[in-house]
Write a protein that binds this DNA or RNA. Structure first.
Lengths: 180, 180
DNA sequence: CCCATATAATTAGGCCCCATAGCATTTTGT
DNA sequence: ACAAAATGCTATGGGGCCTAATTATATGGG
């Protein structure tokens, strides 16, 4: 998690500006501000979820399962699909599921047609967990965004999409670079 | 790290809306979009830093030390201060410093007046590490924000501050709640 | 001066998330 | 039939983070 309680200010960058031609102070300050707000949000909700007995990672798995269930009537998802949708490796997903199954929130069934495959589904307890979390969870999110008028939300959303697109374009460039 | 490759769309929320009075679809979608962009950014830069041999956590420690050094002429910081500024416990900071010292990026000296205290400083190698990272690092950030005009940056910054303030206000409310 | 208390740093032990590599099983495509 | 691909899993290890306990030192009141 990114954290730096006191973000650098313009003065902190001033001595660096002559040294680094690539340094655009306003970009960096915006970047840091963004990361800080995002981290704070993430941390706050992580803590909140932890109080309900689930981690962010597990919560996302539960959300994905619920969504799949609502979209196509409880057919369930395979670990492989879950890993893909959650952006983690299959091995990581195995670990997440292990915990979720131990806690009785998901079940694993073997696929009829393909014996390599496993089908993962929410248990009633898993569903209840989510429904226990949701009311308060949604209310906190609504509260957080409450200060933003409709047009501000619109604008923020557009700006976020702009950054997102930019990042998708230069994703490989971003992550690579530097001698490994 | 938050991750959900395909964010929920309006339709995914539709069946939930009648069930949860607190659910404000536009808030939640904005919230998720924000977290996704933030996570992607964080992950990309984490990968980038990893290619340079430092983790996010360590990088922040190095930044804090550099800043302190530039602000008041190399007096250094104590582990306690570092932990406070980085938002982690002292124990966690000890672990981070252990790695940094092993790699020769920082040094620990004992405080003259108070023998409980330790003073942490960047080594020349630590400083070099940062200076090796900076040019490319700043250039990537500048590139990322390049699509945003000056007025867009202004607006984004204002919106981010708005969310940040809101969060600071309701921080305790946010993180708490739920039977622990 | 002495002791209780506070503070600083560390260690020990543990949890979660995550990755890579390797493996067994099963399917698929030629 | 057989090589290649896919699936899920285990083993191993790293990073980050925490709490609790330990050690050393400082401080302030009695």
């Amino acid at each position: 998690m990114f954290y730096m309680k006191e973000l650098p200010n313009e003065e902190d960058f001033r001595p660096l500006v002559p040294e680094y031609s690539s340094l655009d102070t306003s970009s960096v300050m915006l970047f840091y501000l963004f990361l800080q707000v995002g981290s704070d949000m993430l941390t706050a909700f992580e803590t909140y979820l932890a109080n309900h007995g689930v981690s962010q990672g597990r919560f996302i798995v539960l959300l994905l399962l619920l969504r799949s269930q609502m979209r196509n009537n409880g057919s369930g998802l395979s670990p492989s699909e879950l890993a893909g949708q959650a952006g983690v490796t299959r091995a990581t997903m195995t670990g997440l599921m292990k915990g979720l199954q131990r806690d009785g929130l998901i079940e694993r069934f073997s696929h009829d047609g393909d014996r390599r495959k496993v089908i993962v589904r929410l248990t009633p307890k898993g569903k209840e967990s989510l429904h226990a979390i949701f009311p308060d969870y949604y209310s906190r999110i609504a509260d957080l965004m409450n200060d933003l008028e409709d047009d501000e939300r619109e604008r923020l959303s557009r700006l976020l999409h702009k950054v997102k697109n930019k990042m998708n374009l230069s994703k490989q460039a971003l992550a690579s670079g530097a001698r490994g």
